[in-house]
């Protein structure tokens, strides 16, 4: 989409472009929110969720629009990046994890790791807790030995 411009009005985002002369309220969504975030963003109309624009890379946007897009995407994709695993235990067959994330501390229950842990690679995984909240571990190696061992206990 050429000349796509994003503008924030209160908590809404409006888009204009050559093919969208009138500003349309939009939401920005990743095409692949688990496996390839930060690329390939679809711009959907807020009302009917119809695609109005496509962004291959946020670098295509001007600085202001890019900042708005980044903020909107961070706000919409509330996936927490695990920084350390502070405690883990199994009790009565239930798994519990206490983790420090980029969004703060979290204590959650993990059911059936076979189903709720997505291994994007041997080092990169996404955990979904029993309520559907997601926690991403970008690198097991970078997590440190103590955190890895705690994680190993429940995965």
């Amino acid at each position: 989409m050429r000349n796509l411009k994003l503008e924030r009005r209160k908590d809404s985002i409006f888009a204009t472009s050559e093919s969208l002369p009138e500003a349309v309220e939009v939401v920005l969504v990743y095409a692949r929110p688990i496996s390839a975030r930060e690329r390939q963003v679809a711009v959907l109309s807020a009302k009917k969720r119809k695609e109005v624009a496509w962004i291959d890379s946020l670098a295509e946007l001007d600085a202001s629009s890019r900042a708005i897009a980044e903020e909107a995407l961070y706000d919409r994709y509330r996936i927490s990046i695990v920084e350390s695993v502070e405690h883990s235990f199994v009790n009565h067959g239930h798994r519990y994890l206490k983790v420090q994330t980029n969004r703060g501390f979290r204590y959650f229950n993990l059911k059936e790791p076979g189903k709720n842990v997505t291994h994007l690679s041997d080092d990169h995984l996404v955990i979904r807790d029993s309520m559907g909240n997601r926690y991403e571990i970008k690198s097991l190696q970078a997590l440190g030995l103590a955190s890895r061992e705690r994680l190993e206990l429940v995965l």
């Binding site: 908590d11 929110p33 706000d75 919409r76 994709y77 509330r78 996936i79 927490s80 559907g132 997601r134």
Partner: peptide, 8 residues
């Protein structure tokens, strides 16, 4: 939202 929601 992905991983939550909000009242608007």
């Amino acid at each position: 939202l992905f991983g939550g929601g909000r009242i608007v």
